[in-house]
């Protein structure tokens, strides 16, 4: 996983409520293979919002505007990523070049998937989000800065907003640590736990 420390990037105001993971990656694209280093899921990110039935870009959709081609941050409407647990949604977000999402709320499973794949999701109060949306719409292509160590978001107008993040996720994002590698350092504890667990619940042994 690529570490996440600080990011200054063009931020796009994606001001639509309840974009579910099926809109982030429509079900028919979940069959796509994904090769390391190829960003194979970039083209399916928000596919049906970005493209019409003839695969032509929808001119009116915000991420198709020239100012947002290089957006690395999305400011999202409430409940972004609700719905199905498809990890493809997190992959598509990452592959499309987005490293941070800032919104008032997110789907829990999607949020977890993003964090484990190096995409930082930041929750800020609804009035702050609405202020960011207003600033970004007024100045298309404006940048936002995210500092994970300090847990701050700096808006185009210079105002700074603190955010909370789970301490485990913060550490792993900062260092780019893969969960499996971290866990395997605890292998001895896992084995000790399991031995005691099975001793306490002997009936589980006969059916595994």
């Amino acid at each position: 996983m690529q570490p996440f420390t600080t990011l200054t990037a063009i931020a796009a105001p994606l001001d639509i409520a309840k974009i579910d993971t099926g809109m982030i990656v429509p079900g028919r694209f979940q069959r796509l293979p994904r090769r390391p280093g190829h960003a194979d899921y970039a083209r399916v990110f928000l596919h049906d919002l970005r493209f019409d039935e003839n695969e032509q870009p929808r001119a009116e959709f915000i991420l198709n505007h020239a100012a947002y081609r290089e957006a690395g941050i999305l400011v999202t409407g409430p409940d972004f990523g609700c719905g199905s647990s498809r990890e493809a949604a997190a992959y598509a977000t990452l592959d499309s070049g987005v490293r941070a999402l800032i919104g008032a709320s997110f789907g829990d499973v999607y949020r977890g998937n993003c964090m484990q794949n190096g995409v930082l999701t930041i929750v800020l109060p609804a009035p702050v989000i609405s202020g960011l949306m207003t600033q970004l719409k007024a100045a298309p292509g404006a940048a936002i800065t995210v500092d994970l160590a300090l847990q701050t978001v700096t808006a185009p107008d210079g105002s700074t907003h603190g955010f909370d993040i789970d301490a485990t996720r913060k550490e792993r994002l900062l260092k780019g640590l893969d969960d499996v590698g971290v866990t395997l350092q605890h292998l001895a504890q896992i084995e000790t736990f399991e031995k005691q667990y099975r001793a306490d619940m002997p009936w589980l042994a006969s059916i595994l």
Binding site: S85, R86, E87, Y91, V109, Q116, D179, V180, L184
Partner: peptide, 15 residues
């Protein structure tokens, strides 16, 4: 859990 990274973690570590 997610279908890829999180599943990989459960399969590889049972945690």
């Amino acid at each position: 859990i997610g279908q890829s990274n999180q599943l990989r973690h459960v399969l590889a570590t049972q945690t």
